[in-house]
Nucleic acid binder design. Structure first.
Lengths: 202, 202
DNA sequence: TTTTTTAATTGAACACTGTTCAATTGTATG
DNA sequence: CATACAATTGAACAGTGTTCAATTAAAAAA
């Protein structure tokens, strides 16, 4: 068939992203493929390639949605102000628990390295930056005075929390007991000492 | 042909690891394949699968050698004692520069997620732990008194340095200027504040 | 020396992958 | 009703990891 007008271009895109998200969530990235997504939404592979530039874009769009979910959760923490240290702990805790609860999707954020583009597209980097901005705004609530310091520390904090999360969940840091507890302990150790150092410097 | 005895099982393994390492180093993981490695060492794919359990093992063996190289470089830092802070900075600097100079091999350490085994094999984890032990021993030179504190902080420090390195080199932290300088600045920020917090606590 | 046994080595075959693009087909216009 | 148009298809291509019957060179036995 052709020009079915059952769905617009954008609708098909959204259907693919939704179906792909579900596929990764349940079966993991290893079982993910363009053909599978196509079958899931009732279109052929060809249609998928009309609507997405390539495989990379499909994955990045799925990842962008995952990021959006994480960011939305984290932004809620900003609503009721507390000490910066407590807010950092809360935000980290959210990230860790998302990574555990949606392990497959979270893995996909970092697992796939594009073959075509060496650099991440702007629309994706905007999402990433939103995450850093959240940390930045928390730091400006007392831990940092200059904006440039907050920017740098936000990068350091986020990279550290992510690093602890990644090495833990990929089994490179031996964690005995409940994963969430153990990772939280390491992140707690980091936040405590790092913010203590920050406060001392300010 | 059969039973050529040109090379022993172990020799073929080593040839494959060496050839695979070179292939990843020069062309990146995307262009890497079992068939390519086989052709490179003058054997068929079948032989590769006689000598390695599967594709995963081949990659992990290559990764283990990459880790060995990194560890050997880092162990040299331990030879001339200095302040723990300076030694941590040196060790981090080594890691960052290895990641930049051998980007493809370094990426491969974290890029590939095994389809077969969920858990990394013991012989690989031993290598990973050697890295943590180096940090631990540095921490025990004054920054930590109890072994258990050193163990936990070593994990935090290593995960943080790695996280900064990964997010930077994957283009998720915008780094203007020379990559090595910018990453070093972030790692410096981390080491300074974290160790200040540690020292304060001790 | 010749035959038999043994095991190292091969490569075609299988089911899959991302990607392309001529052919098809449902819709809208002249 | 014929024509033009574009959305949709799926076979085709070159590649992947993996398997395993068939081949073949070396060692052992006759």
């Amino acid at each position: 068939m052709a020009r079915r007008y059952d769905h617009t271009r954008d609708e098909i895109r959204q259907m693919a992203i939704t179906a792909g998200t579900l596929l990764i969530e349940t079966s993991g990235f290893a079982k993910f493929s363009a053909r599978r997504v196509a079958k899931e939404i009732g279109y052929s592979v060809g249609t998928l390639y009309n609507v997405f530039e390539n495989y990379d874009e499909l994955i990045l769009r799925i990842n962008a949605q995952t990021l959006t979910e994480i960011i939305e959760k984290m932004q809620k923490v900003l609503l009721h102000a507390q000490s910066p240290q407590k807010m950092l702990a809360q935000v980290s805790d959210l990230y860790i628990n998302f990574a555990i609860d949606h392990f497959n999707r979270w893995s996909c954020l970092y697992e796939y390295r594009s073959v075509h583009q060496k650099v991440l597209p702007d629309w994706y980097l905007i999402k990433v930056n939103q995450l850093f901005k959240i940390i930045e705004s928390i730091l400006m609530m007392g831990l940092c005075k200059k904006q440039e310091n907050a920017e740098q520390s936000a990068k350091v904090i986020w990279a550290s929390v992510h690093g602890i999360c990644q090495l833990s969940l990929s089994g490179r840091i031996d964690i005995v007991g409940r994963a969430a507890d153990k990772i939280n302990m390491l992140v707690g150790n980091f936040v405590d000492h790092y913010t203590a150092g920050l406060a001392q410097n300010a």
